[in-house]
């Protein structure tokens, strides 16, 4: 089955994370694999990081694997520098 990935915007900050949360809640509600495409991400603030973390925790709790596609270096570095595990694979 082909799943359309949820493509994250390049600018992920507080002002935009309400819309992101809605998309992620909707993704959790659907019974299809969750695929996130993060190749465009250039900036992430704490507010958005918290949304992403809450999302991955809820997905794990619901046994819904999240498939990260093409994570941008910015998001990957942020995950390392904050110790927030988002489940990209690898550290942290």
């Amino acid at each position: 089955m082909s799943v359309s990935p949820l493509v994250l915007n390049n600018d992920l900050r507080m002002a935009h994370c309400g819309a992101l949360r809605e998309q992620l809640v909707a993704a959790l509600a659907q019974k299809v694999p969750i695929v996130l495409d993060a190749h465009r991400v250039r900036f992430v603030d704490l507010a958005t990081l918290q949304v992403l973390l809450a999302f991955t925790r809820q997905a794990a709790k619901a046994r819904r694997p999240v498939d990260w596609h093409d994570v941008s270096p910015v998001l990957r570095e942020l995950s390392v520098s904050t110790g927030v595990a988002l489940g990209f694979g690898g550290s942290p």
Binding site: C17, R21, L46, A47, L49, S81, T82, G83
Partner: peptide, 30 residues
């Protein structure tokens, strides 16, 4: 992290569920 080798532990115990998250509130401590 630009100053040297940094190891960070994030404490997310206070983080609520996605739906009840206050988007303008900082829950994570490091």
């Amino acid at each position: 992290s630009n100053l040297g080798r940094l190891d960070v532990e994030c404490n997310a115990d206070a983080l609520p569920t996605l739906e009840s998250l206050d988007l303008s509130h900082g829950y994570l401590s490091f």
